Structure formats: C-alpha cells, structure tokens
Simulated assay, not measured.
Amino acid sequence: MSQRGIDLTTSLGYLLKEASSTLRASMEAALRPLGMTITHYSCLELLAQRPGLSNSELARGAFVTRQSMNVLLQALERDGYVTRPEEARVGKILPAQLTPLGRSSLEKASAAVRSVEVKMLGGMTQDEQATAFRALQSMVRSLREDQGVSQGDSSEDRRHADK
C-alpha cells in the first residue's frame, strides 16, 4: 500500500517553512557580530515598541516559552540592556524597560535586521510586497481561526497594510 505524500516542489507550506528557515539563518548571521540572537533582538524590539511588557507578553511576542524569556530577561538586566523594578506593583508582573545601552544596541540590531529584510524583498515591487503581506496575514488568520485563537487588527498589521 503506497501513501500519497505532499509534492514539496509545489507545496506552499513547505516553501513558507523554507523561507522562514532561510530568513532565520540570515537574521542570526546579521545579529551574531552584535552578540545577539533573534530572541534577544525580538525582546529589545518589543520593549522599544511597547514599553513595560510583562515576561509572558514578551514570551508570546518573541515566540518562546515564559521560562526562556525569564532567563533572557535576567541576562539582559544583568548586562545592562533592560531594567525591571525589584518589586511588582501589581501581582507578580515586573515590567521591563530598555536602558540607554539597550536602545543603542537595538538601533544597530534593527539596522542589521532591516538589511536582511531589504535583501529578501529586493526582487519585489511595492505592490508585490503588499500583496504578499496580505496573503500571509490571511494564512495566519485562517490557521488561528482553525485553532480557536482570535486575532485583532494590530497596529503592526495596519502599518504593513498601508504600505
């Protein structure tokens, strides 16, 4: 009995995974000289755009576990990239804030990541980029709806939709 598989040469899911893996490798290579990982960069970027996020919110935004984010935040705090209050104002939440060193490091990392994205999109027109963005948003929405996960219209979604 033979099993019919997926034709990887025409599978959009496989192509997305390949693109994701290639993008990740390119971003890691761009961030490595700065002493950063993608998760490190993502954490700093999230804090710059949404100061005061909790450990759980940062973990969700960076696609890692809360435990992994907690370890990273402790290291970032120890190394002077972020500060957190010693005691929680409410519950157990210790909201993190970028320090001047964190902002300076983020500026360099953002430029490195932006150069990777510019290279990735180099062969596409603005219209093609906007179409690809909308298509990917639609795919994410469809899969999240299937999982029972709701998705609001984030400011990030609106920013890219306007391009």
Rank of each mutant, 00 (worst) to 15 (best):
S21L: 15
I38Q: 04
T9M: 13
G35N: 04
A75P: 02
L58S: 06
T9L: 14
S2M: 10
S54F: 02
E87W: 06
L143Y: 09
E18P: 02
A132E: 05
A59G: 05
Y14G: 09
M1N: 07
Q67L: 12
A132C: 13
S21P: 03
K92Q: 08
R159G: 00
Q147Y: 01
R24F: 09
A25F: 03
D153E: 12
T9Y: 12
L121T: 04
G35P: 01
D162E: 12
P51F: 01
R89H: 09
D146V: 05
S26W: 02
S21K: 06
R78D: 10
I93E: 15
K119V: 09
R141M: 10
L44E: 02
M36F: 03
V118D: 10
D157Y: 04
S110R: 15
K92W: 12
L46A: 14
A59H: 01
E57A: 13
E128F: 00
L46F: 05
Q74N: 13
V71A: 08
D146A: 12
F63G: 09
E18L: 15
Q137D: 11
T99P: 02
R66Q: 13
K108R: 15
M1W: 06
T99M: 11
L94D: 02
M120D: 07
C43I: 13
T10F: 04
K108W: 02
D162Y: 03
K108I: 10
R66I: 10
L121D: 01
D7T: 09
K92D: 10
L101C: 05
E45P: 00
L16W: 04
Q97E: 15
G5A: 12
M120S: 14
L53Q: 11
R141P: 01
R159D: 08
L76A: 06
R134M: 10
